[in-house]
Simulated scan of single mutants.
Amino acid sequence: MNYTKALKIEPGNAICYSGYREGQRPGVAYPDYDQVKEDLLILKDHWKYIRLYDCGPHSETVLKVIEEERLDLKVMLGAYIEAEMNNFGCPWGGTYPDEVLQENKKVNLNKIDKLIGFANKYSDIIFSLSVGNEACVDWTDHYVPVESVIKYVRLVKAGAKQPVTFCENYVPWLHKLEPLVAEIDFISIHTYPVWEYQNILNALEYTKSNYYSVAHKYPDKPVVITEAGWATNSNGRGIDQENVNEDLQDIYYNELVEWSKQDNILTFVFEAFDEPWKGSPDPNEPEKHWGLFKVDRTPKLVMQKILEKNHQNN
């Protein structure tokens, strides 16, 4: 089903944006207005749509910059909901005292209220809303039951006018999230061939398989890719070191974007800039190395080529 009609937007390139730099991280230190402005001036020349993950201070700054600088960018805004159940299958945590889980339910309601507030305040900038991110997949450390997600979707739909979704790995959409599909306006999936030990030769076909497994199951519901990308470094934990570098990222990015245009799929590339705060202290942790730009905002190979081509054309 065509996403442009469902979301009332024009086709365009999309990217996930989180602007945390060296020494910054959520809850500790946030990018300031000028740093965010610098980032968005880079992004606006290549992408029309950006995805933000939460309603915290960073996202608030991003929305202010877009509004005050009158930038031609539209936002998918999310609420990052916290664990409401223990997930004993999570390999890196996912279990909490009962009092924490109960408090998280109150916190999540506050986050949903904030999402609705931003949606109404910045209605000309925010084009869609997500009630969570990877909160139902088997390996998540912030597990939220499907019935809670449905409750949050209904609250947001009652309080805001933008289309509402939930961002999740493609696998839960095939079975676990069936009750949710009727509640949302469009489905948002994540697909990462390199996390599933696929090499670059079959990466795009694997992405297509992930996407169409969901799209064919729900032919009457638009399906958007809200995360797909290729890391450029790894410590070998979860991703083979020889399977990630800037050359492979360049190949996957271009194949992904070309296919998305051909098949009229809104695809948010993960992600704009490297984020050193993520994952373990190991500097080669894969979570730190998904950006198309390094943390110092210098372009990696894929963007070097795009910038050079644009310069030649101008």
Rank of each mutant, 00 (worst) to 15 (best):
S18H: 01
S18R: 01
S18E: 08
G19Y: 00
G19C: 05
G19I: 00
R21F: 05
R21D: 08
E22S: 12
G23E: 03
R25G: 13
R25K: 15
R25M: 13
R25P: 11
P26M: 03
G27C: 08
V28H: 12
V28Y: 07
A29V: 01
A29F: 00
Y30T: 11
Y30P: 14
Y30V: 09
P31I: 01
D34R: 14
D34Q: 14
Q35C: 09
Q35R: 06
K37V: 01
E38W: 00
E38N: 13
D39Q: 07
D39I: 04
D39Y: 01
L41E: 14
I42L: 14
L43Y: 04
L43I: 15
K44H: 05
D45N: 12
H46L: 15
W47K: 15
K48D: 13
K48F: 02
Y49S: 15
I50A: 14
I50T: 06
I50Q: 13
R51F: 01
R51W: 02
R51N: 09
L52E: 15
Y53N: 14
Y53L: 14
D54V: 03
G56T: 01
P57Q: 10
P57M: 06
S59N: 09
S59W: 02
E60I: 04
E60F: 04
T61K: 13
V62S: 09
L63F: 00
L63P: 13
L63E: 07
K64M: 04
I66S: 10
I66T: 06
E67H: 07
E68D: 11
E69V: 03
E69S: 11
E69T: 05
L71K: 10
D72V: 00
D72F: 01
V75T: 03
M76D: 08
M76R: 12
L77N: 08
L77W: 03
G78I: 02
G78C: 09
A79S: 13
A79F: 04
Y80D: 15
